[in-house]
Computed example of a mutant assay.
Amino acid sequence: MLPIIWLIWSSFKPTLELLSHPYPPKNFTYINFVNAFYMMDFTKSFINTIIITLSVVPATLIISALIAYPFAVHEFRGKTFFTIFLISGILVPSQVIFIPLFMLLKTIGLVNTLLGVILPQIANGIPLGFLVFVSFFRGVLREVIEAARIDGSSELEILVRIVIPLSKPAFIFIGIFKGVLTWSEFTIPLIVLYDRTLYPLTLSMQVFKQQYAGVYWAEMFAGLTLNILPMLVIYGLFSSKFIRGITLGAVKG
Rank of each mutant, 00 (worst) to 15 (best):
K44V: 15
T49G: 13
I51V: 14
I52C: 14
I52H: 14
T53R: 06
L54R: 15
V57W: 05
T60E: 09
T60H: 04
L61G: 03
A65G: 01
I67L: 13
A68G: 05
F71N: 02
T80F: 14
F82S: 08
I87Y: 13
S88Y: 14
G89M: 09
I90Y: 15
L91A: 13
P93R: 09
S94P: 12
S94L: 13
V96C: 15
I97E: 02
I99C: 08
L101V: 06
F102I: 12
M103T: 12
T107F: 12
T107H: 10
G109A: 04
L110R: 08
V111G: 07
L115T: 14
L115D: 11
L115P: 07
I122K: 01
I122R: 01
G125I: 07
I126N: 01
I126Q: 02
P127E: 05
P127S: 06
F130Q: 10
L131K: 09
F133N: 08
S135D: 11
V140N: 02
L141Q: 15
E146T: 00
E146C: 00
E146F: 01
E146L: 00
I150D: 02
D151Y: 00
S153F: 03
S154Y: 02
E155F: 04
L156K: 00
I158W: 00
I158E: 00
V160C: 13
R161W: 11
R161E: 12
R161M: 11
I164Y: 08
S167W: 03
S167F: 02
P169L: 10
P169W: 09
I174S: 04
I176Q: 03
G179D: 02
G179M: 05
